[in-house]
Design a binder for these strands. Structure first.
Length: 326
DNA sequence: AAGATAAACAACCGCCCTGCC
DNA sequence: GGGCAGGGCGGTTGTTTATCT
């Protein structure tokens, strides 16, 4: 017994919507509202699945939607929220009037990810690539480090090669450019990425080789210290996370995770997220406000609080958000 | 000018959550 | 409490448009 389909697939049209279909749907919704999406296509005379109608309406036809280019301010907000929330597009979109989650997601995937990568910043964790590689080299046990480092290089290689064919990335990788905060609200300490970088093309293979050599050296140095167990974070704190004075080491994650971004998770599992620090306050605040409301409601409200005059998040010292190793 | 490639956008799919019965 | 339907969400795919060779 499978799930009951939301509509009869055979009699349903797919693909691009025609202006006539748009008009039918808009007219029907203007008259009857958006109750019961399953009945809407039938009543509006559309050969479409109710779900398809809902998407068309919410992502394109709604009169309050913006359809133009994203402004710099909007991009900054997306990057900023993504660093905290991860791929929670609906929550991010809720902070951008007239934008849908689909809009934001598409814009992120087609433009912003590449811009960040071009700056030497991993768009998943919002950390510099050099930071990620340093973490790998210093966090893992010697039997695992070589294989995992190789695997990580594999993950990064495609993106790097793609970028290196177009833009120069310094072997040391540039740290995020700190500019004026994008949202004022009396916040003066928040960094924001300067999402513009134009450089000349360099020799791809040479750069990749330098990256590999640098990582190999780090691995070798790490292996040289295998007889000093007290220095091994993974000995005393588990294989994937641990503490080190001034830094939190978490195994970089390249996939989607359930609760917030890997980076935000990482921030809250190590020494940088103590009960007294500001980031910890932010997260415990989120945890305190659960009540009976839905997770989405909480997210939306908590995110809204970031933009409040109190400026909870934007007041955080830049190190608490980015915690750069380099 | 034509084909190839990349970028941008639109839509679909399947999972999951929530509310109702 | 369990089952079901509706709807939300994020990931992915398909199509169109722009740019490059």
């Amino acid at each position: 017994m499978g799930r009951i389909p939301c509509c009869e697939k055979e009699s349903v049209k797919k693909g691009q919507w025609t202006p006539e279909e748009d008009h039918k749907l808009s007219s029907y919704i203007a008259q009857h509202g958006t109750r019961n999406w399953r009945l809407i296509p039938k009543n509006a005379g559309l050969q479409r699945c109710g779900k398809s109608c809902r998407l068309r309406w919410t992502n394109y036809l709604r009169p309050d939607l913006k359809h133009g280019q994203f402004s710099d301010a909007e991009e900054q907000i997306i990057v900023r929220l993504h660093s905290v929330l991860g791929n929670r597009w609906s929550v991010i979109a809720a902070q951008l009037p007239g934008r849908t989650d689909n809009d934001v997601k598409n814009h992120w995937n087609t433009k912003l990810k590449k811009k960040l990568s071009g700056m030497g910043i991993d768009p998943v964790t919002h950390k510099p690539y050099s930071h990620l590689m340093a973490e790998i080299a210093t966090t893992l046990a010697p039997p695992q480090v070589a294989n995992l480092a190789e695997a990580t290089l594999g993950c990064l290689k495609d993106e790097m090669l793609h970028l290196l064919t177009k833009k120069h990335i310094d072997v040391q990788f540039q740290s995020p450019v700190v500019t004026q905060p994008m949202i004022n609200n009396n916040c003066t300490t928040s960094p924001s990425y300067n999402i513009t970088s134009k450089h000349e093309v360099v020799n791809d293979d040479d750069t990749i080789e330098k990256i590999k050599i640098g990582l190999s050296r780090a691995i070798i140095q790490d292996q040289d210290h295998t007889n000093a167990p007290s220095n091994k974070f993974w000995d005393s704190h588990g294989a994937t996370s641990g503490n080190f004075p001034g830094f939190h080491y978490g195994l970089p994650s390249f996939g989607h995770e359930g609760e917030g971004s890997p980076w935000s998770q990482s921030m809250c599992t190590g020494s940088t997220c103590t009960a007294g620090d500001q980031q910890g306050q932010f997260h415990s605040k989120m945890a305190d406000e659960n009540g009976d409301e839905s997770e989405g409601d909480r997210d939306a409200r908590n995110v809204s609080s970031m933009f409040s005059p109190d400026c909870d998040l934007w007041d955080l010292p830049s190190n608490d958000l980015m915690n750069p190793l380099v």
